[in-house]
Write a protein that binds this DNA or RNA. Structure first.
Lengths: 152, 152
DNA sequence: CCAATGAGTAGCAAATTGCAACCAAAATGA
DNA sequence: TCATTTTGGTTGCAATTTGCTACTCATTGG
């Protein structure tokens, strides 16, 4: 499978050398990651996404089109007539880690101690342990034990 | 350190029970995560952020105020006069994992094979290994070996 | 003293979002 | 069979958000 830059014709990057900025240019708007979250949770049809997110339909049309254009969703017309299915591509499925990181941060910092929230569990029904960035030798790292090399 | 819900008065959640949605409500706009990225990379003053991101100054004023309000940045007036320093709170520093996940996805999917980009390295100068969600026993998981429990 | 810098505001234009109404093809159901 | 609902949109318009340019006003630095 040949890898191409997913940038659509005419699009320009906010900060071309930064992978964080490119990711945000691709999926960093208010709705895209919620659409992707729902796709990971089984949504396929236009109306699935509409009902789960509550997004306006013209905006949903536009976001689905853009996510297809950018290689994150694949649009499949069901053999029987007119129903469209939007399914995650490999790149889309790979956003799993980003969604998990966002979910875990939200659990830690966006809920009061007693508030209920949905939980992501493995096949045994147990919650996933927390993601933890490590260095090349497996030791935990954080903001002040890492740095960004701005050249190559 | 008492934990409070960071929601400012009058704000309402897109999807109150979903930690992903709450995280996006707090930092999911076009600029906030780039501001946080720059804070992690040493930016402190208003103009640091303005030059690194290229954001409009009135929007930057607004985003910094919101991030302070939401407990992600702390605003410190330097003892000497007018200079303000914006530094990450503990919750802000904890977004490191989210930024790393976004960065690594971008590296994998938003660059053509030959394109150069900045790199995040540990104290030894080696690139961080890829984050990998696992189940409760340390086995790798992905979209189809996990599920979201929508109750509690 | 005078210029430059830091941290904003204010006013307005352009772009993006959201709402409500409309539409046509296909599936459903009485 | 034939009306109704569902699906996947489009269109027009209003409200909101963004970005640009020009202004402040208080320090610093020389």
């Amino acid at each position: 499978m040949a890898r191409t830059a997913p940038r659509a014709e005419g699009m320009s990057w906010t900060d071309p050398a930064c992978p964080v900025a490119r990711t945000l240019d691709l999926v960093g708007d208010r709705w895209s990651l919620l659409i992707i979250r729902d796709a990971m949770d089984g949504a396929r049809a236009f109306t699935d996404f509409q009902h789960r997110t509550g997004i306006a339909r013209n905006i949903l049309t536009d976001r689905l089109r853009r996510l297809v254009e950018r290689g994150i969703l694949d649009r499949q017309t069901a053999p029987t007539g007119r129903r469209q299915n939007y399914v995650l591509t490999e790149a889309g499925r790979d956003l799993f880690t980003v969604i998990v990181a966002a979910r875990q941060w939200g659990e830690r910092h966006a809920f009061a101690p007693a508030e209920a929230h949905s939980v992501l569990v493995d096949e045994g029904g147990l919650p996933l342990p927390e993601l933890r960035p490590t260095d090349a030798h497996g030791r935990p790292v954080d903001v002040d034990t890492t740095s960004v090399l701005h050249d190559r």
